[in-house]
């Protein structure tokens, strides 16, 4: 382990869905080096522990935005944060989304559930410099309309295509029901000149990547963000191994050309 957590102050918190909260942080003193879209931070809840949380927003003056789902002791402690509270932050860690790789390409951003969080700063980066890329498509799958992240923001993105589909529709949902891959028919992209960015549950990642390969997207242009158990984030604790990959160091963003054969092995 190298550097201990740096104190960051909570600016505000916003409930995103029933089990998800978004908060914005600003350095309480010294700031960490800048984060890139796709990288993650280790967030330290005092006395409880740390959790890896991808950066959902890169704010001015070294501010960070995170969206956290309550799944364990640490994330539940993070849910209790209120404006003015202080958390510890380490980072930035891991590989980010390789945007230079996508220069000039059509872009497919495919998100499942809370997988939209690490993709949000990527979309923002592309929207800030649209001339460098082809058509930007955002495809979002969620459990239900109530589980959709960044609802208002999604509607405000000016994109060639932005589609949302849900597993289960509640009353009055006018949109699509089904898998996120079903939205690919409406997306506007030329497969051979497309870079895809996928984040979500591994089953969803595999299904989406397979469909994209079938349509002619190159495996090395399919970038996926993977999850394993991360403790140290510095490549020293061994927990986040996926075969040859140490995901805190070689990931979380990995090319499908490197990951495909690893994702087919059970319990790897």
């Amino acid at each position: 382990m190298t550097d201990p957590p740096v104190p960051y102050r909570v600016l505000d918190t916003r409930p995103e869905t029933a089990d998800t909260v978004t908060f914005r942080l600003a350095p309480a003193g010294r700031a960490l080096p800048p984060f890139a879209p796709g990288q993650f931070a280790m967030l330290y809840a005092f006395g409880v522990g740390e959790a890896p949380v991808s950066v959902a927003g890169i704010l001015p003056d070294s501010g960070l935005m995170h969206t956290v789902r309550a799944v364990g002791a640490v994330s539940r402690a993070l849910h209790r944060l209120r404006s003015g509270d202080v958390v510890g932050v380490r980072g930035p860690f891991g590989t980010g989304w390789d945007l230079p790789l996508a220069a000039g390409d059509d872009l497919l951003v495919v998100a499942g559930g809370i997988g939209l969080a690490p993709l949000r700063p990527l979309v923002q980066a592309v929207l800030a410099a649209p001339q460098g890329y082809g058509r930007l498509n955002v495809l979002v799958g969620a459990r239900s309309p109530d589980d959709l992240l960044y609802r208002e923001e999604l509607g405000g993105w000016a994109l060639p295509y932005c589609g949302v589909t849900v597993d289960r529709a509640g009353a009055g949902w006018p949109g699509r029901v089904g898998l996120v891959t079903a939205l690919l028919d409406q997306a506007r992209f030329s497969p051979a000149e497309t870079t895809a960015f996928i984040c979500g549950p591994e089953v969803m990642i595999r299904a989406t990547a397979r469909e994209l390969l079938h349509r002619g997207v190159l495996p090395q242009r399919i970038l996926i963000s993977l999850e394993r158990n991360m403790h140290c984030a510095t490549g020293h604790c061994g927990h986040c191994q996926l075969g040859p990959l140490l995901l805190c160091r070689d990931g979380p963003v990995v090319g499908y050309d490197r990951a495909e054969h690893l994702l087919t092995v059970r319990e790897l």
């Binding site: 890896p52 979500g200 549950p201 999850e227």
Partner: peptide
Amino acid sequence: LRSARTRLLDLYGPAGSGQLR
């Protein structure tokens, strides 16, 4: 059929999360 089967898993549900917390 694949769509229905996959959605049966409730992958985005509380226990089915598959990415960074």
